[in-house]
Structures are given as C-alpha cells and as structure tokens.
C-alpha cells in the first residue's frame, strides 16, 4: 500500500518580495492507503500542500516522501513522480484539449510511454470508474455536458493508474447525483486498486461519507489528523478555524441538549439512524 509522508515541510510564496506569505509552516504527517480528506478554510494552505505532493512546487525546507523515497532526491526524475502521484486540479474540465475523449484520457498514459493496446485498455477501464458511457469515448470532449467533461478529466488521471491520487474539489459545482457518482467512483477505484486517495473539499457532508481520516488545516499548519468521527466531534475547534460539521452532527448536538444523547461522533445519516433506533430500544 502506498504511503505519503511529509517531514517538516515549509513553503513560502514570493520569497524575495515584500508580500512574502508563508503558505505552509513546518508540516509533518503520514498517510497509509485509504481515503484522506483535506479540509481547511480558504487560504489555509490546502492547494499549496496538494501541489507539493506531486512536485509541481518544491518545498523550501523539509522532505516529501512517497513510498519512503524523497521525491526531490533526483530532480531530473520528477516526471516519474508525477505518474506515481496523480493530481486532479479544481475544475479539471477546463483543461481538456484533444479531438476525442479517448485521446484526451489517453494523454497521460501516452506520456508514460505505454503501448497502444495498454493505453486503450486503461482508457476504457478508467472511463468505467468515472461513470462514462463507452459511446462517449469517440465524441469530442467539447460536445459534452459540464458533468461529463469533469468525468473525462478525472478519467484522464485515473488512466495513469497512480499509486497516490489527489483530488482538489472533485465534486464542486455538480448536482447531488453527480457528486455521488464521481465520489463513489473514486472510492471504488481506491478500494479495487489500493490507491491512496487525498480529497480536498469544502463539503463536510461529502467528507463524512467518503473519507476514512481527515486532515484539518488552519493558518499554514495542521490542526488535526484523525478519523472522521473524532474530527467532527470537535465542533467548537472546527468552527474556531472557520469550518463546519455535517448537518447530521449538528442535529446530534441539538438532540444531546434536548436530552436524547446519541453521541457527538455521529457524522453520517445511516449511523445516526442506527444510534437513534438503539436509543429507542434501550428506552423501552
């Protein structure tokens, strides 16, 4: 299983300028497989962190380790790191360029130097994970709807079969069904391939549903790195850094105040239902 590890990483934008801004301040963490959510207020350093992980940015100090190897040990081989660590940026549908969907999805695998058959296989497989119909593959990506374009862009990264997959707001601007399908596809991909996934999102509901662990960032530092339930039970701490808890956690808090305690670590509706039924049974 792939591991991602940061050791004392710091990064500053516009170092030489007057308006230098520390984006990351002595960050360390370790992730081993699973789906990790990265949450934080706007400007807390999430996007910077994401770009450091696949070598788009180089840390000022500290090391980024993927599978235990420092990615900057051989700066000339940074391209190999990018094949290993797939990054889906915000609004990735704005980066489509090819004549056909097939060609666009195959851009990454082609850059990896794979054979034609292998590219074809990967394109079809990743399109399936992203929920794209096979007949879409030979259309122009510019004829598709916004949601479908997003899926094409996502498959473009999935097709590289990365060991670590990073997604910056993968479901932003999609309708609820689209969100479920995209995030569900990512979860399935992660489970089947054993990919270590990091999702950046502002939607606490999505995070609660799809993530195992959460990393909470605030003021260029890591505030918490714990399982979802533990993070969401710290509602006061989260709101102090401008973050929220899922709606269902709020309801659980209100219920506790009203005398019906189902615990504060409730963060999905299904779990809440179980807890409430359990409470019902113990009452009678």
């Amino acid at each position: 299983m792939a591991t991602v590890e940061l050791k004392n990483v710091s990064f500053t934008y516009n170092k030489s300028m007057k308006n230098a801004k520390k984006a990351l301040d002595d960050i360390s963490f370790r992730i081993e497989g699973g789906i990790t959510g990265l949450i934080g207020h706007t400007g807390s350093g999430k996007s910077t962190l994401v770009q450091l992980l696949n070598g788009l940015l180089k840390p000022d100090s500290g090391t980024v380790l993927i599978d235990g190897t420092d990615i900057w040990k051989e700066p000339k081989k940074i391209r190999d790191v990018r094949f290993k660590v797939g990054l889906v940026m915000q609004y990735p549908e704005h980066q489509l360029f090819a004549d056909t969907v097939r060609e666009d999805i195959g851009f990454g695998p082609k850059n990896m130097g794979l054979s034609k058959e292998e590219i074809k296989k990967r394109v079809e497989e990743s399109a399936r994970f992203a929920g794209l119909d096979p007949e879409v593959l030979d259309k122009s990506p510019f004829d598709l709807s916004g949601g479908q374009k997003r899926r094409v862009a996502l498959s473009g990264v999935l097709a590289m079969d990365p060991e670590v997959l990073i997604l910056d707001e993968p479901a932003a601007g999609l309708d609820p069904a689209g969100r479920r399908e995209i995030l569900g596809g990512i979860k399935k991909f992660s489970r089947e391939k054993g990919t270590c996934v990091i999702i950046v999102s502002h939607s606490m509901e999505d995070m609660a549903l799809y993530c195992d662990d959460l990393i909470v960032m605030a003021n260029a530092k890591i505030l918490m790195h714990r399982p979802c339930a533990e993070v969401f039970s710290e509602a006061e701490l989260l709101s102090s850094v401008g973050l929220d808890v899922p709606q269902i956690t709020k309801i659980a808090r209100l219920m506790q105040k009203a005398g019906a305690d189902i615990g504060l670590d409730v963060y999905t509706v299904d779990y809440a239902v179980d807890k409430i039924l359990e409470l019902e049974r113990t009452k009678h």
Binding site: Q51, N54, L56, R79, R82, F83, G86, L87, M89, P92, H94, Q95, F107, G108, N111, M112, G156, V157, M160
Partner: peptide, 16 residues
C-alpha cells in the same frame, strides 16, 4: 493565471 493553471494540470499528466 489561467495559463499557469493549465500548464500545471498538463504537467501533472506528464506533459513535457
């Protein structure tokens, strides 16, 4: 800004 973003995205897909 847009150019920088696109370059980053394509670099992430191994564009050289």
């Amino acid at each position: 800004d847009e150019t920088r973003k696109i370059i980053n995205a394509q670099t992430a897909r191994g564009a050289d």
